[in-house]
């Protein structure tokens, strides 16, 4: 008989660390992803902040309003768009299949992705806040505002990460994922109150936007950056933080179910 030497498998934690390192290098060494995901929101903030510097009333500048929107859009890019495109690419070029053939615990792969999203999101938010505060006199959140900021960003990021992983399974490859997800994200940004005030969006488009997480993430973040006087401009007349949590929470559950049911380690038609 061949008693294979009982070698202990590496711990899941150790493999998670490896995967986190791999994912961070894959992201930050790729110029396209850094420019697209990290620099694009920064450029938007610089351009919009310089051009659209008008007063919304109550002494609030548009840049103060835009800060919430551009952070929400940045989180969408770092999570949903990033995951959908990168995982679709890795699936079509055989990276995922290669990993599935190793004893790597499957969970470690997702932990690595989450670490990547977290790192990119934290870096992006820090850069946006710094630019806002330094160049555009944006008032940063304080006290309880930070708490709201953190849970809205974390919950929105989680929902969008799960959705991005789920969406990656619909695309044939990275390019088709990009071609599908990028325009949808752009439309959502326009109708969710990122580039201009949500109250200026036609009602029926507001209803469409309300189906997706971006609108709720943006509104939750507005509650942090804007004075309560501007809550009256929201569709419900107040910040609706409870509903923000509810909708983002539902999207987390929906995203998780979709991931579990649809995730594939190889191209469709195989397996």
């Amino acid at each position: 008989m061949t008693a294979a030497p009982e070698r202990t498998l590496p711990s899941v934690a150790a493999v998670c660390r490896t995967r986190a390192g791999v994912e961070l290098k894959e992201f930050f060494r790729q110029r396209e992803s850094v420019v697209f995901t990290l620099m694009f929101p920064v450029i938007l903030l610089l351009v919009f902040g310089s051009v659209l510097d008008y007063d919304l009333g109550s002494g609030v500048s548009f840049t103060q309003y835009f800060m919430a929107g551009v952070i929400a859009a940045g989180i969408l890019g770092a999570s949903l768009q990033n995951m959908a495109i990168s995982i679709a690419t890795e699936r079509s070029d055989g990276t995922l299949k290669g990993l599935a053939g190793t004893p790597m615990p499957k969970s470690a792969f997702f932990v690595g992705k989450v670490v990547q999203v977290l790192a990119v999101t934290v870096a992006l938010v820090a850069i946006l806040l710094a630019i806002g505060a330094l160049f555009f006199d944006v008032d940063l959140p304080s006290g309880a505002g930070w708490l709201t900021f953190v849970w809205v960003a974390a919950l929105g990021s989680a929902a969008c990460t799960l959705l991005g992983i789920a969406v990656s399974s619909l695309a044939r490859n990275g390019r088709s994922a990009s071609a599908t997800v990028t325009p949808i994200a752009l439309v959502l940004q326009f109708i969710s109150g990122v580039f201009f005030q949500f109250s200026e969006v036609p009602t029926w488009l507001q209803t469409v936007a309300a189906l997706f997480p971006l609108r709720w993430m943006a509104q939750g973040l507005r509650s942090v950056f804007l004075p309560d006087a501007l809550a009256a401009e929201e569709p419900a007349g107040h910040w609706e933080l409870g509903r923000v949590a509810l909708v983002l929470g539902i999207w987390c559950v929906v995203g998780l179910v979709l991931c579990v049911r649809t995730f594939r380690w190889q191209d469709r038609g195989q397996g």
């Binding site: 294979a4 290098k25 894959e26 790729q30 690419t89 070029d93 055989g94 990276t95 290669g98 053939g101």
Partner: peptide
């Protein structure tokens, strides 16, 4: 205990 060299090979990597 397995080693697998797929026909498709591994993908592009920045590593």
């Amino acid at each position: 205990q397995l080693g697998i060299v797929l026909q498709s090979g591994a993908g592009d990597s920045q590593l």
